[in-house]
Design a protein around this nucleic acid. Sequence first.
DNA 1: CGATAACTTGAAGTTCGTCAATATCCGTGG
DNA 2: CCACGGATATTGACGAACTTCAAGTTATCG
Lengths: 236, 236
Amino acid sequence: MFDAAESPTESAPSPLLCAGGSQPATSHRLESLLSGLPLQRRRLRSRQYVFHAGQPRQHLYLVHAGFFKTCLGSEDGRERITGFRMRGDLLGIDSLDLASHSCDAVALDFGEVWEIPVAQLQNGLPGFQECLTAALANEIRRDWSWMLALATLNAEQRVVTFLLDFAVQMERLGFSPRCLLLRMSRADLANFLSLQLETVARVLSRLQGRGLIDVARREIRIEDRAGMLALLSGLH
Amino acid sequence: MFDAAESPTESAPSPLLCAGGSQPATSHRLESLLSGLPLQRRRLRSRQYVFHAGQPRQHLYLVHAGFFKTCLGSEDGRERITGFRMRGDLLGIDSLDLASHSCDAVALDFGEVWEIPVAQLQNGLPGFQECLTAALANEIRRDWSWMLALATLNAEQRVVTFLLDFAVQMERLGFSPRCLLLRMSRADLANFLSLQLETVARVLSRLQGRGLIDVARREIRIEDRAGMLALLSGLH
DNA sequence: CGATAACTTGAAGTTCGTCAATATCCGTGG
DNA sequence: CCACGGATATTGACGAACTTCAAGTTATCG
């Protein structure tokens, strides 16, 4: 059943956008690993916190439905969204070795998470530890890829990269990759992309003006994926 | 000896600069865990690669001496330094679940790394898996903290943050926290801080002009730590 | 249906990047 | 040991991209 536990099969993933990323294998495996267990489920409404930074860390959470964001704050009030999380993603892995959470996790709409009793499963459930390790390493690679993007791309390219990446993830979840419904506000999106919300709005308008996308508030239709990819290659 | 294996003791760490960070406990524990084992050691000279992105991942590496950088590249030639690594840091954890490395690891000067046969130790060495998990989670928190810094601080504040953070790390390694010897070029530093090397040079000169630091090429003496911290608080 | 939040758009301002010239260091070889 | 050349670092002037401030529009929720 899990004889492949020790044999990683994929080569290093290219940063973002690579359709067949390494995320699916892992997260699907985790979901199926856990699906039999009687896990506590928590439903949340928009803006509800799964946990706050500083709260004692009891368990991990697996996102089963809905969209979430994780946010890091500093003493002097600066804030940054560290990622948008969706079905199959884990909330709380960043503080797996700590007594309390190091970030906030907030629902962006209605959602459901499964409480995972880590300590028990690490010993009792074969393959679970491997999943955890994979999820952690995956998060690191994902963070690094975004750091690279933020460091080297201009505002337009960042937005395009985000949209195309989001499309890939939506497709992975079984939705259309052309018709995106952003769950986050412009402010959240801007924060994640290290831009001002006005800049994001302007870029979206500009992309629409060129016929690359169709924007209606938080609904975004991708009209010309090739054209968007061209923007990333620098061939304006 | 290691009865504390299952009890995380620290609360969530504040981003950067917090002197008593969570890194030391972990890395020291890993070093002592491994110190008895007959590990393969590799000495490297400046600019030598520990591994390249894409190479098959055989083992992990523990930095025992010297300084290293890890770099992520993209197909179109963009590059970003994901971190500077020193004694006690692990090289290669980011691809723990993959068959090949996802980044480069390069020596910045003479150095030594220990080859860690992960698969064997994960089963055979009690406490090792916990160390790995802690190192992974630690890397995520560190990455997030830098993302926050890069997203919210201006050029001057970024450089100051880096210097103060570097000082803390040097002190942890037993060196003076006032007298820093940067092992990386201005270009590397700029890359890591998402700035241009000219900007870094200018900022360093400006800080020196105000008497906050003393710059001599790669030797930097911290003259007024309080003044530097004030810059971060926004009270110019 | 009104009020508040979310978003869009414009104009002015600032920081940082770009280009270019110069200076300094360091290793190599004469 | 010194001289030379390439790498590394500093400094200046200019311009561009993004931010800031402000006003106006459109949704959303009580």
